[in-house]
Amino acid sequence: MIATPAAELTAATILVAFAAVFLIAFMRGAFGGGFAIIGIPLLSLVMDPVTAGGLLAPLFIAMDLFALRYWKPSTWSKPDLVRLLPGLVIGIGLGYWLFRVLDHRAIAIVMAVITLIFVGLWFAGGGTVTIRPRSSPKAIAAGLTSGISTMVAHSGGPPLAMYLLSRGLSKEVYAGTTSLFFTVGNATKAVPWLLLVKPASSDWTLMAACLFAIPTGVWLGWRLHGRLDQRQLYRACYGLLVVTALKLLWDGVSGYLA
């Protein structure tokens, strides 16, 4: 277990945490998940980042259960999931070990550079999606890397997106497959996170308050998804990858400079 300070139940803490959970839930509804790290900077304003990770772990499961109302089995690419999920589960196990022994800053920098290269190649190609056939080795690698990064930093989105975006799936199947992938991942990593960061009673109270942000956030995100066409959704995903990568890069570099 890692000793972390409990979140203080001030008005500012509750408002910021509520806004962060709403934002993550919104992204969950719009894109199926994978961009939880975007809400971490908000939470880090009012609490330790590791405490924030422990706070979010159970809330992710609540988001997943609510999102299943929208991303039904008809939106899942089952052949891709069969190849992705084993690597995800193994990656979470590896991530649990790496969380305790490796430098998180180095992991963040490597993940950021790989993601920026991927997006850079997309821009260099004119912003078009090159559809690639289903690949078991690539899917296993994506699942494994996503499992490690989601366990270490709640940033499993980029590895999965790099694989699924290249598959040229319809926007509904892309979001539905992403949603189920992280439903499995979040359920798997919840216990390891709670073992690493044992929440205090004030943390559980804050989680309960944040639950009310989830239904509206997921629903509004899902409504946005319906308004975006295929090309707009893919552009938005690539744009979010850049934001996520820059956040990871900043976390890694600033950690060394601090």
Rank of each mutant, 00 (worst) to 15 (best):
M1Q: 11
I2S: 04
A3H: 14
T4A: 09
A6K: 08
A7C: 12
E8A: 12
L9C: 09
T10C: 08
A11K: 03
I14Q: 09
I14Y: 12
A20C: 05
A25F: 05
G33E: 14
G34D: 00
G34H: 07
F35N: 12
G39F: 00
I40F: 01
P41H: 03
L42A: 12
L42H: 03
L45C: 14
L45V: 09
V46Q: 06
M47C: 02
P49K: 06
G53Q: 07
L55W: 05
L56Q: 08
P58Y: 15
P58R: 13
A62C: 11
L65Y: 02
F66I: 06
A67E: 06
R69I: 01
Y70I: 14
Y70P: 08
T75A: 01
S77V: 08
L81F: 01
V82M: 03
L85W: 06
P86I: 00
W97M: 11
W97R: 13
V101H: 02
H104P: 08
A108V: 02
M111K: 00
T115E: 02
L116T: 01
V119C: 01
G120Y: 04
W122P: 07
G126H: 04
S135F: 08
S136N: 14
S136Y: 15
P137Q: 00
K138W: 11
A139Y: 03
G143W: 09
S146Q: 05
G147V: 00
M151R: 11
A153K: 00
P159K: 00
Y163L: 02
L164H: 03
G168S: 13
L169T: 01
S170P: 13
K171T: 02
A175P: 05
A175L: 10
G176M: 03
T177A: 09
F182L: 13
T183H: 12
G185L: 12
N186S: 10
T188K: 06
A190P: 01
W193D: 09
L194M: 06
L195Q: 15
A200C: 10
A200Y: 12
W204P: 06
L206K: 04
A208L: 15
A209Y: 15
F212Y: 13
I214T: 13
T216G: 12
V218W: 06
V218Y: 10
L220P: 00
L220G: 04
R227T: 11
R227D: 05
R231W: 11
Y234L: 11
Y234E: 14
Y234G: 03
R235G: 06
A236Q: 05
C237E: 12
C237N: 15
V242N: 01
T244R: 10
D251V: 05
G252R: 07
G252H: 13
G252S: 15
V253Q: 13
S254C: 12
Y256M: 14
L257H: 06
